[in-house]
Amino acid sequence: MLQSYLQKEFLTESVARRQTPGASAVICRSVTKVFGEGETQVQALRGVDLEAPYGEMSLLVGPSGCGKTTLLSVMAGILEPTSGSVTVLGQALDQLRGQALVRFRGQNIGFIFQQYNLLPALTAAENAAIPLLIQGWSRRKAVAKAKELLDAVGVGARAHALPSQLSGGQQQRVAIARALVHEPRLLICDEPTSALDGDTGHVIMDIIRRVGVGPDRAVIVVTHDSRVFEFGDRIIHMNDGRVVKTESNGSAGPRVSVNPSPAQEILTEQARQTRGRSQ
């Protein structure tokens, strides 16, 4: 307990020290990734340079197979690049090995997947509590904290439901709560809306935006769903393993709600409007 607490404190502190003001949450320099060898070799990333600033939601868009997921995996530290450097929250990933990298990921990065990836045997609240359980929290405290997050994303009432008893949109909300429960500073989402219908997709993007973005936090969303482009502060276009264009989007919706709790009213309101629109 004490040890993991100290490690956490130390890590956070060292990350903060290395971080230069105004720097980006994620910086990629000449990142390449090659899968396989010889004949079957695939050049998934061909020298990617990009920055994802704090306080922003960056969208990574582009045609299928252009390398978005690969890039996301590299940024998340779950795939090693073939060459180039990746700096996440001031930490050069290639300087972290094994256990340290796993711990860094567990403490600083939240994940949202296209297929939710909730554990079917656990309730919504228990699922949302997993990152805290990984950090050694007691089950009771972790689940209590997870319930606060479920409230914030509007599924507090289903805290005791199993994933199979939830709709896709509800499951993705649980996944959002899980991604944020340990207050990571980088939120990484791969196609979070593509398994959902258009309206639900909007609601989900809105929640991610409101709950995930903060002054010292950043969100990166991979999507090929042009209906949700409006939510991005910047849109990074990829093609064939390269970044081809980066747009800033000044008209993106309101940002910065560090504390999730006040966001809940807005969310509930938003959800009601969305429902009204779809009827």
Partner: peptide
């Protein structure tokens, strides 16, 4: 895999 991504060694 999800657990590993989320920080289980």
């Amino acid at each position: 895999g999800a657990l590993k991504a989320m920080g289980v060694s």
